[in-house]
C-alpha cells in the first residue's frame, strides 16, 4: 500500500497516512484498539462513546451534504475531519470546512478526500482545509512539483491556515501576510 500512503499531502510534502477507515458493521477483523480510526460521521454520531473510549486517535469522515454541526460537542476529541469531495464539482464541503474553522473553532486537521483539481487546492486552503488525500493524478503531480496555481489577492475575509492581512481600506479585501 505504499502508493496509497504516499498520497497524503500535508505540511508541504507527501506524508504517510496512519489513519485506517473504520470497517463496515459485521466486518471479520475489527480495528486494533490502538489504531487511528477514521469513522463515518453517521456511525460516530449513532454511538459516540464507543469511539471516544478507544485508545487510538479519532477521525471523522464527512460525506458531502452531511451537517458538521452535530460534531460540535466532540471536536476536542477529534484529531482529524476528512471532508469528502465525490466530484470536483461538488462544493458543499467548502462550506463545511469554513463552518468547522470559523464557527465551531475546530483546530485539528481538516483533510480533503476525493476528486480535487490542482486549481482547487488554494481555494480549499482558504476555507480551512490543510491536508489533501487526492485521487486525481495530475493534482498529486502538481503538489509534488510545487505547481499550485493561485491568485494571491483576495476579496473575501476568511480564516484559513495562512495568515492574511487586510488590504487597503476595503474591509473585505485580503492578501497574504509577507
Amino acid at each position: 500500500m505504499a502508493n496509497e500512503t504516499a498520497r497524503l499531502w500535508k505540511d508541504g510534502g507527501f506524508r504517510p497516512n496512519p489513519w485506517q477507515d473504520w470497517p463496515e458493521d459485521g466486518a471479520l477483523e475489527p480495528l486494533d484498539p490502538g489504531t487511528d480510526a477514521l469513522v463515518p460521521l453517521e456511525r460516530f454520531v449513532a454511538d459516540p462513546d464507543v469511539f471516544l473510549a478507544r485508545k487510538g486517535r479519532l477521525g471523522v469522515r464527512v460525506a458531502a451534504g452531511e451537517d458538521v454541526a452535530v460534531l460540535a460537542e466532540h471536536l476536542e476529541n477529534i484529531a482529524l475531519i476528512a471532508l469528502e469531495f465525490p466530484s470536483f464539482a461538488d462544493g458543499r464541503n467548502y462550506s463545511a470546512a469554513r463552518l468547522l474553522r470559523e464557527r465551531l473553532g475546530y483546530d485539528g486537521e481538516i483533510r480533503a478526500v476525493g476528486d480535487v483539481l490542482s486549481d482547487q487546492i488554494a481555494l480549499m486552503r482558504r476555507c480551512g482545509i490543510d491536508a489533501f488525500l487526492v485521487t486525481h493524478g495530475p493534482t498529486r503531480a502538481a503538489l509534488q512539483g510545487g505547481r499550485i496555481p493561485e491568485v494571491r489577492h483576495y476579496y473575501q475575509p476568511v480564516s484559513g491556515p495562512e495568515i492574511e492581512i487586510p488590504a487597503g481600506s476595503r474591509p473585505w479585501a485580503r492578501q497574504p501576510a509577507a
Binding site: A89, G91, Y94, Q120, L123, R126, C127, Y154, Y155, Q156
Partner: peptide, 14 residues
Amino acid sequence: ILRQWSSLHPEFLF
C-alpha cells in the same frame, strides 16, 4: 461591491 466579494470566492465556486 458584490462583484468584488463574489470574485473567486473560495467557498462558492462550485
